[in-house]
Design a protein around this nucleic acid. Structure first.
Length: 938
RNA sequence: GCCCGGGUGGCGGAAUUGGUAGACGCAUCGGACUCAAAAUCCGACGGUAGCGAUACUGUGCGGGUUCGAGUCCCGCCCCGGGUACCA
């Protein structure tokens, strides 16, 4: 291995080697002892809050991909300190939740134990890389002193309703006063459907009835609803935890089940969550993901009269096609299905509904194109034509969106078209194509919002866009409905039937869900030896007989993983406060996160929930900003780079990659740690696994070359590279630099240890600039113009590139600078001292060591960033590329301050121009000063 | 299907507002030092032709705008991510 080579070389050379192990050890210890990166609670300096998405401490420890974002944010943190900011850069652990619990179960240990062990391992790995975290602010979401405030915020949500007129959360007792006085009518509140009641009605209600009514308004509420039940995990899951009908964690099947659950009324904030995205400095793609998840669509609600006098409400985005409605479809789960099914159709409909309800989420999604449904036997009356419209049920209509019923326009909606075609229903065309085509639609629906309306009474001749407006006007004028907005976003399922989460501070007093008083928080998670899922849809806490408060039973569900992570960034501002989730002064000083770095996997989960919680706190004046994360940068994923060996089938012989096609072979993953530049260390391979001890090899050019594939980094693929190993072999500074050098931060890229020696070599070259033979040597001589130019080119470049998070080009610039200074044999303080400061955010250990040798007593972390002086970059001449018809032919060195006309004259007078003209005429000369000359020949 | 990214040497990537494509690094090859190896240093390194100066060609494909296109416009192909009966 290269590390051994370096070690060997160290003993051979007599001069001062770059001994990264000693240097890094020394500074790790110093920073810890001196608390170098402790953020001041109050300061005259401007604040800067740099946050990483905190990890859940998994049993596998950190691999080399995890620190990528942390290195980037650490560079920014250190850079901002150099710029004079008071920087808050904390780290902690997302310790509650499913992953931690699954890991505990698989190892047979208690999650409290595994979480502690894993966190400690993470801390040591993180400290090894030299991050400038303020470790005194470390938090863990499973710490009772932390989740006490998670519970407290939950109670805030439980004790709130949303005023749609004031557009903010308000205390629930204010709603009770309104109910008491005037009943439910005229209150502008976001709530579930219910029948209106008067003030007198309210006064006569029982406690239970009142509680149930308030549940329809609370921001944290209980409800019976269809939820994602995952049998294998023994819990329900939120929508963002389910992918393709399988649990995101573990890939287990998920079924739809009606259960009583806690929910968060995030839908009340849909509009604000959507609008406020505009003011955030996030990537467009991330904002777009949130917009799509929120899914706002504009249209109309329309009431269709039923024969029994009731009305059926539907939501449509295409009211312009209302004359094309030939049938209605209800979701199988809709309450209307039962009510509207006639005796004659009863058997068929019941059979269908039962079948549809028992389909798994996965079946529903994989068989999207299969058309199923049943006729209820009832009809509705078309509000404009008076026609009888048959009512069907079909599972392509979702119960949870809109009203769970649609007006079907088969000619202009692909799903309705398929349904009509399958059941032989009419498909009348009401929108002509853009080319005026009004022929019947036989193959597919015409969904484009383009063309003119036909066969539609008062809408005839209008363009689609105008017809939508006109149709809504008419619907409103006739009292048939109204313009309406609809959101795809659903309320967040907040219950988990698991052990390892925050207990709900809720107890059931005579069956009425009641808040545990604030003074009794934290409501501690009870110690349990048997914390495994029960296998029934209830939490392990239900096994306890003494899980009570004040003699009443406590809620047995626990909160989901995203509870603790929805506000942790606030706790860092004041992590040890025992009176409040964070002190008001601290909140006012730190305000919000200036830079948040993390992966896109949290685009719609964590980032949406956090924004929601933050807005509720903002409504109560508990936080000073309405958004928590001003700027957000997504780092790409580091993929694994797997190596393969090829075993000749039925033998113990392995053939090198280039020769494998001459044999029948099986490709096997081999540990990337015993492969260097794709060459296998065959002795290490024999020692790797007992079954390979007798292995024989067919080599090419005396080497065994491995195959390569880019895959996910995972243990089973033997492509995991541990940062500890890289730090041991090359040092933390090399690791930091190399991770940045790999490519643009936001891009996904494979980890390949091969190139790391380049960055290590760079650090040694840099180290040698400050040393001569075996002694540190930096002179006080005045720098030359060339040396100053080299330095200030770097200062300018680093300033620009850090600003745009282009750290890979920063590293290149350092390399160029060091190469040039090496050629210049520069050892002058005037140049080398600023260079050390510039480098310190990237390679902090090395920079500190040099800084100390330069005679400074304080940490380089609080030095001042060198100022850029453009005067040093002024050039007296410019080497013009001269091109003819766009092809560069020769270079001409001309004074830099020459005007365009002078340049033109000089070039035309150049003898080389004559040669390249090839006798043709000069039609035009383009001169861009200090860039290019192009001569157009005719 | 829809919405976002992206496609540049053997490899990772650079080219920030249209102005010398391939910076920087890895790998490879050649040389110096060495008994030898490692380390270090020097040099070559997109493709084709040529001893060579050099010429032609070249940023996924096809067209266009421009004095000039990796960069802008139109139409495709491929890869990655998100989302999916959302009416």
């Amino acid at each position: 291995m290269p590390a051994n080579a370096y070690l060997r070389s160290k003993f051979r050379h007599s001069f001062m080697e770059y001994n990264f192990r000693a240097i890094e050890d020394k500074w790790r210890r110093r920073w810890e002892e001196d608390k170098t990166f402790k953020a001041a609670d109050t300061s005259d300096k401007p604040k800067f809050y740099v946050l990483d998405m905190f990890p859940y401490p998994s049993g596998a420890g950190l691999h080399v991909g995890h620190p990528l974002g942390y290195i980037a944010s650490d560079i920014i943190s250190r850079y901002k300190r150099l710029q004079g900011f008071n920087v808050l850069h904390p780290m902690g652990f997302d310790a509650f939740g499913l992953p931690a619990e699954q890991y505990a179960i698989s190892t047979g240990k208690h999650p409290a134990v595994t979480t502690k062990e894993n966190s400690e391992r993470y801390i040591s790995q993180l400290k090894n890389i030299g991050f400038s975290f303020d470790w005194d602010r470390m938090i863990s979401t499973s710490d009772p002193e932390y989740y006490r405030w998670t519970q407290w915020i939950f109670l805030k949500l439980f004790g709130s309703w949303y005023d749609t007129e004031l557009q903010q959360a308000r205390p629930i007792d204010e709603l009770e006063v309104l109910f008491e006085n005037d009943g439910s009518e005229g209150i502008s509140a976001f709530h579930d459907e219910h029948e209106t009641f008067s003030g007198e009605d309210w006064q006569q209600m029982h406690e239970t009835q009142r509680s149930e009514m308030l549940m329809k308004y609370r921001l944290a509420y209980q409800s019976h609803a269809y939820v994602n039940w995952c049998e294998a995990l023994g819990t329900v899951l939120a929508n963002d935890e389910v992918k393709d009908g399988l649990s995101e964690r573990g890939g287990h099947p998920v079924e739809r089940r009606r259960m009583r659950q806690w929910f968060l009324r995030i839908t009340a904030y849909a509009e604000r969550l959507l609008n406020d995205l505009n003011e955030l400095d996030w990537t467009d793609s991330l904002k777009e993901m949130q917009r799509n998840w929120i899914g706002k669509s504009t249209g109309a609600s329309v009431h269709f009269a039923l024969e029994n006098g009731e009305t059926l409400e539907v939501f449509t985005t295409r009211p312009d096609t209302i004359f094309g409605v030939t049938f209605m479809v209800l979701a199988p789960e809709s309450e209307w299905v039962q009510k509207l099914t006639t005796d004659a159709q009863k058997e068929e409909v019941e059979k269908y509904v039962n079948w549809a309800k028992n389909r798994s989420e996965r079946e529903r999604q994989t068989e999207v194109k299969t058309v199923t449904g049943a006729f209820t036997g009832s009809y509705t009356i078309h509000p404009f034509t008076g026609n009888k419209i048959p009512i069907w049920t079909g599972d392509y209509v979702l119960a949870g969106y809109g009203t769970g019923a649609v007006m079907a326009v088969p000619a202009h909606d692909a799903r309705d078209f398929r349904f009509a075609k399958h059941f032989g229903l009419e498909i009348p065309r009401v929108i002509a194509g853009a080319d005026g085509d009004s022929s019947p639609l036989t193959d597919e629906a015409y969904e484009a919002k383009d063309g003119k309306v036909i066969h539609s009474d008062f809408l005839d001749g209008l363009d689609v866009k105008d017809a939508i407006t006109r149709a809504v006007e008419e619907i409103e004028a006739r009292g048939l409905g109204a313009r309406r907005e609809n959101f795809r976003l659903r309320d967040a399922n907040f219950s988990r039937q698991r052990y390892w989460g925050e207990p709900f501070p809720i107890y059931y007093r005579n069956g009425v869900p009641t808040a545990v008083p604030e003074e009794s928080l934290p409501l501690q998670l009870p110690e349990m030896d048997d914390f495994k899922p029960t296998g029934r849809p209830e939490s392990p806490l239900a096994k306890l007989t003494d899980w009570t408060y004040d003699g009443y039973p406590l809620e047995t569900d626990t909160m989901p993983g995203f509870a603790g992570s929805s506000w942790y960034f606030l706790r860092y501002m004041d992590p040890h406060n025992s009176n409040r989730f964070a002190d008001n002064e601290a909140l006012k000083y730190w305000k919000d996160v200036d830079l948040y770095v993390g992966g896109t996997e949290h685009a719609v989960g964590h980032l949406l929930y956090s924004r929601f919680w933050h807005k509720v706190l903002f409504d109560y004046g508990l936080v000073p900003t309405n958004e928590p994360f001003r700027k957000l940068v997504n780092q790409g994923m580091i993929q694994g780079r797997s190596n393969f060996v090829y075993r000749i089938n039925g033998t113990d012989t392995f053939v090198s990659h280039g020769l494998k096609d001459q044999h029948e072979t099986t490709a096997l993953h081999v540990d990337v740690n015993i492969v260097s530049n794709d060459e296998l260390d065959t002795e290490a391979f024999k020692a790797w696994r007992p079954e390979y001890a007798q292995a024989e090899f067919i080599l090419e050019d005396g080497k065994y070359i491995c195959g390569v594939e880019i895959e996910k980094m995972s243990k089973s693929k033997h492509n995991v590279v541990n940062p500890d190993k890289v730090v041991e072999d090359f040092g933390a500074d090399t690791l930091r630099l190399y991770e940045m050098f790999l490519g643009p931060l936001e891009q996904s890229k494979p980890w390949n240890t091969n190139g790391i020696e380049g960055t290590h070599r760079f650090l040694r070259k840099l180290w040698n600039l400050y040393h001569n033979g075996d002694s540190f040597q930096v002179t006080e001589e005045e720098a030359t113009p060339a040396e100053r130019k080299t330095l200030h080119t770097l200062i300018k470049k680093i300033g620009e590139d850090v600003e745009r998070f282009s750290f890979n080009t920063c590293v290149s610039s350092f390399m160029i600078c060091v190469n040039e200074l090496g050629e210049q044999k520069c050892s002058k303080r005037e140049i080398l001292e600023p260079l050390a400061v510039l480098l310190s955010p990237f390679a902090p250990h090395l920079a500190e060591e040099i800084w100390q040798k330069l005679g400074h007593e304080n940490s380089i972390s609080y030095a001042a960033l060198p100022a850029f002086n453009p005067a040093f970059l002024v050039e007296s001449s410019f080497n013009y590329p001269v091109s003819f018809n766009g092809k560069t032919r020769y270079q001409a060195e001309l004074p830099a301050d020459m005007s365009a006309a002078e340049v033109e004259a000089a070039i035309l007078a150049d003898e080389r121009t004559e040669r390249w003209k090839e006798g043709k005429e000069v039609r035009k000369v383009i001169v861009v000063p200090k860039r290019i000359v192009n001569i157009v020949l005719g």
